[in-house]
Design a protein around this nucleic acid. Structure first.
Lengths: 225, 225, 225, 225
DNA sequence: TATGAATGAGTATTCATTCAT
DNA sequence: AATGAATGAATACTCATTCAT
């Protein structure tokens, strides 16, 4: 994802716009100014994503986001058209980062489908528990949100699921896995892992590891022949 | 659950102390007045539970709850000490009702463990999808809540899980099921079913049914030998 | 003060009235019922006076008064037309009791005017400190109160002051005392004593006694020749 | 007191940290912006102090304060963290102004201790009567306030009393005055003067003057040899 | 008499958003 | 680009008062 495609970003000099920029903008040379702007946006999104990941959408205030960045609330409006836009973009960033980490996992690319799936599940669940304890909430976007943004979130999840779906499909094709339905299996995998932070939150580290291992093994049954 | 055990309920001017109570009152352990009060509390909890089930905790305002009951906000404070207390009680009510329905399910009590589990999963997921679309949120109690209430919710979940745990244990004991860990399996079942409304929300009824059947079958794999 | 003259008391059978009863009511035999009513009123006033004495007017809620009496808020409206009426009456009761105690003091009636004044001051200040820590507030009746009630409070203070005024006048007449103005002297005495709870509130008992003795001696200078 | 020391004031987006500050800013220790902010805070405090002085703490609502300043309630929260903070700061301001006026009084600095004390008492009592009719309430800070703020108020009174204490001490040292205890004398002076508005509130101006003179003369007896 | 349910106007507080500088 | 002041609508909560039973 390049910053230029971040949704809800206010385009400089053209007033507020909650719609993504036309790619035509690329025609203009991307100068220092633009790069600086992109960097700033990146900072904001990171801060917002962390907060939303920790506390959930409704509990995060722009004040907090601004404070974490050591700027004022008003500044955020130079880059985003409003809270929804900012948070949506942040969720997207968080999801993209997460997806990228899974994709970048060496163990996720070699060996049998089973080994790869196990590695992906382990990494995913550990990211969830340690870094995004409220990640589940990200996908519970208030039903009052504009359809536009809900669509965006669903799209994000699709991308996120793709990495699991690929392994699943390969496993099935290669005869390693057997599933009732790839979609249903994906949903179960995702749901189970997302809620993990809830159960293991109060446990000691050693116990956490054991429980998470059990979780991964249990989930592997979903694809067993 | 009897209403008398609803948490956070404000007790009426009772406090029998400096003035002598007529002993006759003991004859009728619960008077008309008390029954009426209980009924009202029930109404409030039902309304609140519906709203929380639909929109989640943070998004529900007391104003809305009051409006749905056609009373004023202030009235709610006659019965509950505050929003947290009301919502906690509502969640508890909702959870208890849900649990009771599962327990009351005939198909959940007879036949092989496998048949019973399948029946329970089917019913649970259909309740989730049709009646409590935001039920998942119920278990995402904000970490800022008082410990007291968080404990209560966890206790509630334990009761709720018990019905599944019983079948699971029997199935394992009888050699019908095989699981990595009963706890992990329960968590996966619960999480997967709770999030179901999210995926199937936009589908047509017929499609919904098919997807939910797939889901149940997929989950049955978690206990396969 | 007989209860029949308590202001703001709702007359039975005649609807609410914030005006004192005409003495003609005495024509009717004062039956058991009336006596019971009077006793109840007395209880309410005592409870209210204590609370107002402790916390001040604005901080006391009818709920608290009712709770201390183990009745419901609504019940209070059988006896008083509203909060102001109740509190005014309570202040009056408190003031009357206080005055009565000073008047009943043996040391206040015999010996030289100086000995008597010293005894009165000592007792007064000790009542203030130990029993009515917020008594001062009683005389800071919100200026928004109806004139009727403000008058009543002033009248009460006049009665209360009378006991000191009498000794003062005698002392002056007998040549024992010398004052710039009896009124001003009274005001100073009253004000100084009323605020005593504020300074000595945090002190240990022994220290309190020493400080209060200093206070009394200091005040005696106001009448020195 | 400089505004920078006003308690409870919310600091603006400062928090200089992740972003480098231009060192040049140090040249102007207090910029235009800061001065403007200080002026605004001053305005708010003055309005609040007046209201508190007139009506007392509990009776003042933020709405009233805001209205007097022709801003909205919410704006006050830009400068103060809440009602307590605002009111405490207002009391402090009021007390400081009062103290400063007494200290600035020429007649309070020259002549015999007796002349100076008489001048101070006269001025003090006239400020109380004319400008802060509810000033007494300021020192009756509700016992429910946070300890932090109660301490602050006590400290304020100490500063306020200091101006009288100094004259008292000098008079005693120089043999002009004779007191039982400096502390007790101060308390009596303060209490008597603070309550003055209550007695003289309803009088005509000419009468007021006479009564206040009597009051001052009466209080002078407290230090008579 | 007494109760307890209900009200409605009020209170402090929060927060996304706007805008002049 | 960034600030910080200001807004206004919303939110939880309180309390004196009324009233049917």
């Amino acid at each position: 994802m390049t910053d230029a495609t971040v949704p809800g970003v206010v385009s400089p000099g053209s007033g507020a716009s909650s719609v993504a920029e036309p790619a035509a903008a690329d025609a203009a040379p991307v100068g220092r100014v633009q790069r600086k702007r992109d960097r700033r946006i990146r900072q904001i999104l990171t801060a917002a994503a962390e907060l939303v990941g920790e506390r959930g959408y409704e509990a995060v205030s722009l004040e907090e986001v601004a404070e974490r960045l050591d700027v004022t609330k008003g500044s955020l409006y130079h880059y985003f058209s409003g809270k929804d836009a900012l948070v949506t973009a942040a969720i997207e960033t968080l999801g993209d980062d997460w997806t990228a980490r899974l994709e970048g996992l060496p163990a996720g690319r070699e060996g049998t489908a089973e080994r790869r799936l196990r590695a992906l599940l382990g990494e995913h669940v550990r990211i969830a528990v340690r870094e995004y304890p409220a990640a589940l909430r990200l996908f519970l976007v208030p039903s009052t949100w504009p359809a536009d943004q809900r669509t965006r979130i669903k799209e994000l999840r699709r991308r996120h699921d793709a990495v699991f779906r690929a392994v699943l499909n390969e496993g099935v094709a290669g005869g390693e896995f057997s599933v009732v339905s790839v979609d249903a299996t994906l949903q179960c995998l995702h749901a189970s892992m997302s809620q993990a932070p809830e159960w293991v939150g109060g446990l000691r580290r050693a116990e956490q590891e054991r429980v998470l291992d059990d979780l991964v093994e249990t989930l592997m049954k979903l694809v067993a022949r």
